[in-house]
Design a protein around this nucleic acid. Structure first.
Lengths: 346, 346
DNA sequence: CTGAAAGCGCTTACAG
DNA sequence: CTGAAAGCGCTTACAG
């Protein structure tokens, strides 16, 4: 049925190693060695082959190659749930790193199902990927994948629960810490937190970091921060901040669990008749442009460096494939971007 | 250097067609035919082979297969710029469609560079993808890719300028139209538009649709809509709406070029002392949850159905690969989601 | 250094 | 219906 296609497309037009060898006046064996930079080839032959290959714009058939090599120059990127905005910068960073090394990326998404994740992994392994990058949906630790022992796996965002695996996650404890440090440096002392969902490690880690930083300065978070977990949205921020200001009118800064929450907090602060940042400073997490720049004043926020995280994880995967194996949970630094909501210019 | 890996991983453990054939007591030729559902195999042999394959959990080596077939069961997804939130739902829809057909997806990103796009395409073609899905960054028409004639290409979001190509885009004109229809149905007559950047086809198309719908009702957009292009952000929305309300105090509805712009518009409307939706109704585009649900009242918005768009494009690509070729620009329907900002409940 | 030959794992005419 | 054989395009010992 597709006989025609077969002739025209695949067979006829493609130039093969044999063509190159013929043009260079050598055997396919030497042509192969020359192209792959192997030893035992005279400079003369090597040049002839390279020239011929260039002239014919030869690209080796990756399938024939894969049939004879351990590696396929393909890696698998397995996302838990593509429908998640945190995944995009991570993908971007990873794609960047892989692309630089001329690795191809097979994308597979688990649509937030453990069963489907296993199937997708099998599919990737069937394609003989050299390694797999597992991109989580949250930073909550997740059970390790059941890959083949000779196929390295690196986890990003959601770390593996197995410490023998290699995982990359943003340093959420540091994030909480630098949010507080920034506020303290700006002269704030009555600092409270309006957190995200307590089922998220990110929320708990940030709280821990914030509390530790306060303690370092001989301070304490206002209210009972262990109780201020809620949802990841504006309306929770509004509601919690309203309650907070009523109970503790002297609060002079709020660390919000996310930029989204921060927007709600800012609304509530304003509605209480207080000014931002004069009376109350606000800091968020994620540094999400759309929220941060839409806020008035612009929102100070902690950037989780997700693109860098993706790139680092990808590079580590490449290293693992090359035999330089690392283990453990890497917590990648984050950085605070100061803006008007905490008294910086802009 | 990786001799060990080679032995352990690739060679030793993998079960091959020969193993299956042996277990089934047939030749590899019949085993192959049976597994591929070809004719000229007795029911008896077929069953034996299938059973053996299952017992040995045989998965055919995709590279050996690709060496003998025209197709590789791999498609390329070439994004213009992954760093773009519109791309995510499209990817998701496409991945869904491809995954269902057991096609693998190679992801390549052009990082918004035409040169890099060409290189990535070459890389995909070298991998012998069966087809390529080109995902644009805007809905502005773009020059066609220089692919090989036997490798189908389908464009999503950004259509190809070549009408002989197959492209899928959201119907932006319809989007403008239904925004107006909705407002008119809600009793509004003095409707104005605060648009996005005029370099975007999406902005121009929506305006055209909105104007046409007004005309259908014997109405006209308030102000000079041709002049109300600006930026895709909140502050432009705020500024333009402020100006608009000053010049035309009787405006009773605003169509905003995006949800983001709409948020700015809503702020300005409120600041002018008007109520939403009582005095002024507002409609946005994109139906972006985070903006739409963060607004007070919730923002009525036109959903561009991007996930569906991705799925449709992917399915069309599969059809093209199978020989059922379509051409032209498909404008996919969009839908309005009514919320509080235009008087609906919630 | 060089090349003939075997082999990677599969598919597909082609004889039986 | 069945299987021996050739072939897909490359790589890699192994002799020269």
């Amino acid at each position: 049925m597709d006989d025609d296609d077969h002739r025209t497309g695949a067979t006829a037009e493609t130039t093969t190693l044999a063509d190159v060898a013929r043009a260079a006046g050598v055997s396919v064996a030497t042509a192969s060695k020359a192209l792959n930079g192997r030893a035992h080839v005279s400079a003369r032959s090597r040049e002839a082959v390279l020239a011929a290959a260039a002239a014919l714009s030869f690209t080796p058939n990756p399938f024939a190659r894969a049939l004879n090599r351990a590696s396929t120059n393909t890696i698998g990127m397995l996302t838990s749930d593509l429908d998640n905005r945190f995944v995009l910068p991570i993908l971007l960073g990873a794609e960047d790193a892989f692309g630089a090394g001329s690795l191809s990326v097979l994308l597979a998404d688990a649509r937030d199902s453990a069963l489907r994740e296993q199937l997708q992994l099998q599919s990737l392994l069937t394609r003989r990927v050299d390694g797999v990058l597992v991109v989580g949906r949250t930073t909550n630790p997740r059970p390790p994948m059941q890959a083949k022992p000779d196929v390295p796996v690196v986890y990003v965002y959601a770390p593996s629960t197995d410490e023998q695996d290699l995982s990359f996650e943003p340093d959420n404890e540091l994030a909480g810490r630098i949010a507080v440090e920034h506020l303290v440096a700006a002269g704030r002392r009555r600092i409270a937190i309006v957190n995200g969902e307590d089922t998220y490690a990110a929320a708990r880690d940030r709280l821990r970091g914030a509390a530790a930083a306060m303690e370092d300065h001989g301070l304490e978070l206002v209210g009972n921060p262990g109780l201020v977990f809620g949802a990841w949205d504006e309306s929770w921020g509004r509601q919690a901040a309203g309650r907070l200001l009523a109970a503790h009118p002297d609060v002079d800064a709020v660390v919000a669990g996310s930029d989204h929450i921060a927007r709600g907090v800012m609304d509530a602060v304003r509605e209480s008749g207080r000014r931002i940042p004069d009376d109350v400073a606000v800091v968020g997490f994620d540094n999400w442009d759309i929220l941060v720049e839409g806020a008035r004043p612009h929102l100070t926020s902690v950037d989780m460096n997700l693109q860098e995280l993706g790139r680092l994880a990808a590079e580590a995967l490449v290293e693992s494939i090359e035999g330089r194996v690392r283990r453990g949970r890497i917590r990648n630094p984050v950085r605070l971007v100061a803006r008007g909501s905490s008294g910086a210019d802009s």
